[in-house]
């Protein structure tokens, strides 16, 4: 799979979701049913490193979304 294509698919899919900005890793796997979870996980984590995505952690679970999108940043005054 082409990594850059995957990046575009991820961004486009997330931008297409209305009313929800944070996603589980599984939601990313679902975008690429043919790929191994580990491959997708590595791309997602890379995209965080590149500043496209960001983590949101409840302490026990981690959610992932487009950087700066959603209401949490405002509620936590970290925007």
């Amino acid at each position: 799979m082409d990594e850059n294509e995957a990046r575009k698919t991820i961004v486009a899919t997330l931008e297409g979701k209305k009313g929800k900005s944070k996603f589980y890793l599984k939601d990313f796997y679902a975008m690429f049913p043919e790929e191994k979870p580990r491959t997708i996980k590595n791309i997602v984590n890379k995209m965080v490193g590149e500043g496209t995505l960001e983590y949101w952690s409840s302490g026990s679970t981690t959610l992932i979304g487009l950087k700066g999108v959603g209401k949490q940043a405002g509620a936590e005054h970290e925007d």
């Binding site: 929800k20 944070k22 959603g70 209401k71």
Partner: peptide
Amino acid sequence: DKMCEIPLAIAA
């Protein structure tokens, strides 16, 4: 609705 994303609270 101002503070939270409702789908996230539901999923939690």
